[in-house]
Every structure is written in structure tokens, then in C-alpha cells.
């Protein structure tokens, strides 16, 4: 399970970083989304990986904490998802405004020279 999860995080993060460094705003947005998925899974995994364990303990009495998953990273991940979703949406709006104002989807707001643009 650890291998699969870390491979997933690695692939998401690598694709995300590559896309963030691309010159088109759409690629940057998708890259940021992928990066934030990678980070969210990473936060989740920091609560240690468990299978079939509930995160919420019953109230009162003695409970064996080892029988339960760590609830804190789950709460953190929820917050992080909401925040990165909202800021990415905001970024999308700015991106579209930029496209409307400049007529190009290049991140610098202007097309570079054809010759110097390397793929």
C-alpha cells in the first residue's frame, strides 16, 4: 500500500510541477490542481496508513487509541481541499480576465517570439 500511495503522490507531484512550469495559463491551473491533490494525499498519509479503522472514538470511557485512525490529518486535509479549491477557482477567474484583456493565454500576457519558443 505504501508503494502505491507514494508512487501516486510522486506521479501527481511530478506532473503538477511540470505543468506549473509550462507557458500557458490553462496548463498552470491544471498543474496547480494536480500539485494540490498530491499535497492532500501526502497530508493524509502523515496520519499513518491504516485500513478499516474509524477516526471517531466513542464518547466517555477508556478507548484503545491504537484501534483508531488519526483524525487530525483528515480534518486538515478537508480544510486544505476547501482552501486550495477556492483559491484555484479565483486563479481561474483572473486567468480568464487576462485572456479577455490581452487576447492570449500566455502567462506573461503576450506571445513570445515564434523562434525562441521551444517545445
Amino acid at each position: 500500500m505504501e508503494i502505491v500511495l507514494s508512487a501516486a503522490i510522486g506521479v501527481l507531484a511530478a506532473s503538477g510541477i511540470w505543468l506549473v512550469l509550462r507557458p500557458r495559463t490553462f496548463q498552470v491551473v491544471i498543474g496547480l490542481c494536480l500539485l494540490s491533490y498530491a499535497v492532500n494525499i501526502f497530508i493524509f498519509s502523515m496520519g499513518r496508513l491504516t485500513i478499516g479503522k474509524p477516526a471517531i472514538m466513542p464518547k466517555g470511557g477508556w478507548v484503545n487509541a491504537a484501534e483508531y485512525a488519526d483524525p487530525l490529518p483528515q480534518a486538515l486535509v478537508l480544510t486544505a481541499i476547501v482552501i486550495s479549491f477556492a483559491t484555484t477557482a479565483l486563479f481561474l477567474v483572473v486567468m480568464m480576465v487576462s485572456k479577455g484583456l490581452t487576447g492570449t493565454d500566455h502567462v506573461d500576457g503576450s506571445e513570445p517570439d515564434r523562434n525562441s519558443e521551444g517545445k
Binding site: L35, F42, I43, M46, T87, L90, F91, V97, T102
Partner: peptide, 25 residues
């Protein structure tokens, strides 16, 4: 402003992700 805004927002979104990775570690 919009052009500067795109750079600024992208920079800070990536920065926030760094923040989260650090906090998680």
C-alpha cells in the same frame, strides 16, 4: 495588474502547497 496578479497568485498558491507539505511533515 492582471498580468502581475497571475504571477503573484501562482507564486503564492505554490508557496501555500509548500507550507502544507512542511506542516504535514
Amino acid at each position: 495588474k492582471v498580468r502581475a496578479g497571475i504571477h503573484y497568485i501562482a507564486m503564492n498558491l505554490v508557496g501555500s502547497l509548500f507550507f502544507l507539505v512542511g506542516v504535514a511533515l
